[in-house]
């Protein structure tokens, strides 16, 4: 951890109108899995403002390289080679250093390496589909992978997920824990997707769409997409709301 001045402030309240609602019937599985009662609020305590942090020592050399981390020696995954990079920021705009990012995705044909996956597209023997990294002092990160394919899924009779990469993020407080998905600029499946449309604010959807980043493309090798992620921010104020006299 490079964080010499750990933060201990409470988090800004979560904007639940920006986040997807629990009950989104066009995404059918949410119907029986969405809590129906209002979540209960209470002020952040030490249990919410603390959280696990991870050192770079947990990382293997190729953890952030999905093209090679499951491939046989000398081989690589099939598909469009891409760099996915960006920064993890908090709501105050500060880079979040030391943030663990875990990603998972389908292969170039839209097929996941998973026991419960039944799509007819073939597995790629050189592609596992997971990667992880930890942000640097500025909050920046980078993965190398192949562009995942869109895939059909059982919801309506003919629903297709836009190409996407799943992202899991840790900040430094358990209340910041977030799982989201990155989409690709220009994908016509994005506005058709019931999972995307669980988010009601169009600006919140746009925030999940990574633009093509030609400046960071590696010539004759890989295109780049830029994806910044924002975690909840904390109050910086040292003033606690202690009862008078305490």
């Amino acid at each position: 951890m490079s964080n010499l001045n750990p933060e201990t402030g409470p988090f800004f309240p979560r904007d639940r109108s920006w986040q997807p609602k629990a009950y989104t019937p066009e995404y059918k599985t949410s119907v029986v899995r969405s809590p129906q009662k209002a979540p209960i609020s209470f002020p952040n305590t030490i249990s919410e403002i603390t959280g696990p942090v991870f050192g770079h020592n947990i990382l293997g050399e190729r953890d952030h390289d999905l093209i090679s981390n499951f491939a046989k020696p000398g081989e690589s995954a099939l598909g469009e080679r891409i760099i996915v990079h960006g920064r993890v920021l908090d709501e105050r705009g500060r880079g979040v250093s030391g943030a663990l990012i875990e990603v998972w995705q389908a292969n170039a044909g839209g097929r996941y390496r998973h026991k419960n996956e039944g799509y007819i597209a073939p597995l790629d023997t050189n592609f596992g589909g997971c990667g992880r990294t930890i942000t640097n002092d500025e909050g920046a990160y980078e993965f190398r992978t192949i562009k995942p394919g869109p895939y059909p899924w059982p919801n309506g009779v003919n629903d297709w997920r836009p190409a996407h990469i799943h992202f899991s993020l840790f900040g430094d407080g358990f209340a910041q824990r977030l799982i989201t998905q990155m989409y690709f600029e220009g994908d016509p499946l994005i506005p058709l997707c019931p999972i995307v449309n669980a988010i009601s604010d169009a600006r919140a959807i746009e925030q999940l769409i990574a633009p093509l980043d030609m400046a960071n493309t590696i010539p004759m090798d890989a295109r780049a997409y830029k994806f910044d992620i924002v975690l909840r921010g904390r109050r910086s104020s040292p003033f606690d709301n202690k009862l008078e006299g305490n």
Binding site: R132, T180, I195, A198
Partner: peptide, 19 residues
């Protein structure tokens, strides 16, 4: 100059691959 927290999306059925 506040940013908005990235919107969550479901972990989906294949969360095990990543986690």
């Amino acid at each position: 100059n506040r940013l908005k927290e990235s919107a969550s999306q479901t972990a989906g059925p294949y969360v095990h691959i990543g986690c």
